[in-house]
Structures are given as structure tokens and as C-alpha cells.
Simulated scan of single mutants.
Amino acid sequence: MRVGELAGRTGVSVRALRYYEEQNLLSAERSPSGQRHYPESAVDRVQLIQQLYAAGLSSKTIAELLPCVIDGRATPALLERLATERGHVDQRITDLLHARDRLDSVITAATSNMLTGMSCRRKSESTSSADGR
């Protein structure tokens, strides 16, 4: 398939696909006229690359890990690296859950204040005046 079709099927821009090639994350065969042609498996590979980027991995890390993620074969060092990256993903998930919980508490407090007729601004002003500021 040509680059435009791969872009359409994966929701990734043509520019991003070219970047993936520059970073050795994706490869294409070239026609005699220089057009890129990708195998059907490129769709899954691009989706995997996108997932790994979304998990916070750099293109360099993705390039190092892709062979073992795709082939399922890895050296002990690569397995350790995968476990480390998984730990980083777990930590980001934990951090995001804490951020969500914090937002939930702010939303709950703001909703409660709206029901009692006190806005966040009015509440902070009354707290400041009680402090003598």
C-alpha cells in the first residue's frame, strides 16, 4: 500500500510516517519511481508505534524494543529493559490516577460550594479576611 493509504488506515500523518522511517521504526520498499510501498503488516506496526509513543517511550527506545516486541524474542538485557519501561508506564498511570483523584476532589468541592452559594473566589476571600490579610 502507498503512504497515503497507510496514513488513512492508521490515522497517522504522512509526515509522521516519514519520520518513523527516518528513525528506523518503519520501512518501505520503493518503486522504480521512488514511491513508498508498505506491506499489510505496516498497519499493525504503526499502531504499535503509536501505543508506545503514547506510553511515553522515545523513538530511540522504541527502535531498540520493537524487534523483541514484534518477534517475541529477546535477550535477557532486552527483557530487563522492557520490564523497566513497563515500570515507567505503571508509574505514569499511578501519577495520572492521583491527578484524576485530585481533580475529582476539586470538582466535588466546587459543586458543594455552588450548592451552598459560595464560589471558590468568595471562599478564598473570606479565608483571607479571617487571616487578617
Rank of each mutant, 00 (worst) to 15 (best):
A109E: 04
R73T: 13
R92Q: 10
S27E: 04
I93N: 08
T108C: 02
N24M: 10
D95N: 07
S124G: 08
G72A: 06
A99H: 06
H37S: 12
Q50D: 05
R100G: 00
D71A: 15
N24Y: 05
G132N: 07
D101W: 00
G8A: 11
C120D: 12
Q50M: 07
M118C: 10
E85L: 07
I107D: 09
S105K: 03
S124W: 12
A109S: 08
S41M: 01
R2A: 01
S59M: 08
M114C: 10
H88S: 09
G117C: 03
R121D: 02
C68K: 06
Y20M: 03
E40F: 05
R86L: 10
A7K: 07
S13H: 09
V46N: 02
L115Q: 12
E40L: 09
R122S: 12
H37Q: 14
E21M: 13
N24Q: 13
A63W: 04
R73N: 15
N113F: 06
A110I: 02
D131V: 08
A28S: 15
E22V: 06
S59Y: 00
V46D: 00
A109C: 02
D90A: 11
T84S: 12
L52M: 08
R73V: 13
D101E: 10
H98F: 02
L48Q: 12
V106H: 03
D44V: 00
D71S: 15
A109K: 08
H37R: 14
L115A: 10
S129R: 15
I93S: 05
V43I: 06
R100V: 03
G11D: 01
E64D: 12
G117D: 00
D131G: 15
R2L: 09
V89F: 04
C68A: 11
H88G: 10
L6I: 02
A55I: 06
G56I: 01
V43W: 01
L57N: 06
V69L: 15
P67A: 14
S13I: 07
G11W: 03
L25M: 13
R121N: 05
D101S: 01
R86C: 09
N113H: 11
T108I: 00
L48F: 04
R122I: 08
G4K: 06
Q47T: 10
I49E: 00
Y53A: 12
V106A: 10
S33N: 13
R9C: 06
I70D: 08
I49S: 01
L65W: 05
S119G: 03
R81I: 09
R86P: 02
Q91P: 00
A130M: 09
H88R: 15
S31P: 05
P67D: 11
D44Y: 01
R92L: 11
R9A: 05
S112R: 15
M114S: 08
R133I: 07
L79P: 04
A83K: 13
R122N: 14
S112K: 14
L26S: 08
L115S: 10
A110T: 02
L17D: 02
N113K: 07
T127N: 10
L115M: 07
D90F: 11
R30V: 04
D71I: 13
P67H: 11
S59N: 05
I70V: 15
C120Q: 06
S41W: 02
S13A: 11
Y53P: 02
R30L: 08
S33E: 07
V12Q: 03
N113I: 01
Y20R: 00
A28R: 03
M1V: 01
P39L: 11
R122K: 13
Y38I: 04
G72S: 08
